[in-house]
Write a protein that binds this DNA or RNA. Structure first.
Length: 425
RNA sequence: GUGGCCGUAGCUCAGUUUGGUAGAGCGCUGGAUUGUGGCUCCAGCUGUCGCGGGUUCGAUCCCCGUCGGUCACCCCA
């Protein structure tokens, strides 16, 4: 019989690996708290229309990557990204009327039906945050600086911080027209992919990887040339703040990104190219001042980002996994098992993590097991200990062993665990 | 979705001069010390050689398909 397997592109995270996930999630939660963000949780399933409206009908995500299904006459979709659902919640709960600025973050699974490759899976995890109600470049700079520092905290080296501005919605529309006007007569020279983009999403020709496209685009009108004064001020101010913060960054005028909702500030951070290969975008984000209104809310400016957790995991250095228990309780013979369970319960009441192995193994095997679990202390309960109403407390680090009465033993275990862990992994 | 490469024990891999049904290390279990770990030594267990079909007297090896992985493209985190 064929075993049932996990769905393609959807992976298990086993206990041996979970420590690394938790390490990154904890670092993120800490950074968020230090910057005044509060966690929000929204459903994994939303109506399909939300993503169509928020992300854009002609984007690749909406056109071909969504897990959508009909259920009792409703068109539903497994969320392919976090921003749309969080924005929907912001509008639905009229949060703008309760507080002028909201800083929210989230963590969780997203779903896109793409061909999997390293750092890209069909169910994948994002860390993200949104700031509603602050239109200013200062909060853009703060966010970018925070993220660069976060990647540094994770030990990810060689991070590239790419920054651009698309201008406001009017500027963006104006530029799109200018670009189409410029490229249409040259359409036959474009790569096949870009010929298609010219009709659907012309701005994305700008970050095409094709050298042919790059050459053509090099002489095209620049986005920044059609900025209006407020676009120019916003971007200049962002740069001033980044410089004041000392955040390293590079202006990438052809950075565009694939989601339709972005306006003005846009950024992307890449790193660990040798480990990640082609999918080296660790995180990306930008301002989307029009989305809240598009979703039926008031006019509220917003900026946000999302980072790929698996990519951060691949890019960051390994963190050693921590031991699962402090103390291992080793009963010898069936007579000792009940006593071992009782002793373990008392230890746990003192906050000591411990495990009882009642499989009836030899003492040698029990000690080997304790060692491989990374326990620091073993409590041995054998026939002679039962008879004399004592336990053996063995220190696996300091190599000492004491024969103690029950109450003294509980105390001794706590004392041993309080000692420094030098020399033990 | 398109294309290239890969698929042998729980893990990392060796093996097959187009073919005669498999090995190592690690890990796991036990022992060397009739109740004392980490190092060492000894012994043992685990394989439909991804799956299905074809060629052949015979396929882990050759061919086709399929599934999974991987890399690149598209796109993105």
């Amino acid at each position: 019989m064929n075993p049932i397997r996990a769905v393609k592109g959807m992976n298990d995270v086993l206990p041996d690996e979970i420590g690394r996930w938790q390490h990154i999630e904890a670092a993120f939660a800490r950074s968020m708290r230090l910057h005044g963000f509060r966690e929000v949780r929204t459903p994994y399933v939303e109506t399909t229309g939300l993503f169509v409206r928020a992300i854009g009908e002609v984007t690749d995500v909406v056109e071909k990557e969504m897990y959508s299904f009909a259920h009792h006459g409703e068109e539903l979709t497994l969320r392919p990204e976090g921003t749309a659902g969080v924005a929907r919640a912001y509008v639905e709960h009229a949060v703008h009327a309760k507080e002028p600025v909201s800083r929210w973050y989230y963590t969780g699974a997203m779903f896109r039906a793409e061909r999997p490759q390293r750092g890209r899976y069909r169910q994948f995890y994002q860390l993200g945050a949104e700031i509603y109600g602050d239109p200013g470049p200062a909060c853009d700079a703060e966010l970018i600086d925070m993220l660069a520092a976060f990647l540094g905290d994770l030990g990810i080296g060689d991070v590239e911080v790419l920054v651009n501005s698309l201008g406001g919605p009017l500027t963006r529309a104006r530029y799109k027209e200018a670009l189409v006007t410029y490229l249409t007569p040259r359409a036959s020279e474009l790569s096949p992919d870009s010929q298609r983009r010219l009709l659907t999403s012309p701005l994305r020709i700008l970050d095409s990887k094709s050298p042919i496209d790059q050459a053509l685009v090099a002489d095209a009108p620049s986005l920044h040339d059609v900025f209006d004064p407020s676009d120019r001020d916003h971007f200049a101010s962002l740069e001033r703040h980044l410089q004041a913060l000392g955040t390293p960054y590079r202006i990438e005028p052809r950075l565009v990104r694939g989601l339709d909702y972005y306006t003005r500030t846009l950024f992307e951070m890449k790193g660990a190219k040798n480990k990640l290969g082609a999918g080296d975008t660790l995180l990306g984000g930008g301002r989307y001042d029009g989305m809240i209104a598009d979703l039926g809310g008031p006019v509220v400016p917003a900026i946000g980002f999302a980072a790929g957790l698996e990519r951060l995991l691949i890019a960051s250095d390994n963190v050693p996994s921590s031991p699962t228990v402090d103390t291992f309780v080793a009963p010898l013979g069936q007579e000792a098992v009940s006593y071992a369970l009782l002793f373990a319960r008392d230890l746990r009441r003192l906050g000591v993590a411990c495990e009882v192995d009642a499989r009836g193994l030899s003492l040698k095997s029990l000690l080997r097991r304790a060692n491989s679990l990374g326990a620091r202390v073993v409590v041995i309960l054998g026939e002679s200990e039962l008879r004399d109403e004592v336990v053996q407390v063995k220190d696996l680090v300091g190599h000492g062993q004491q024969r103690l009465r029950r109450e003294e033993a509980l105390h001794a275990v706590s004392e041993l665990l309080r000692a420094p862990t030098a020399g033990h992994p």
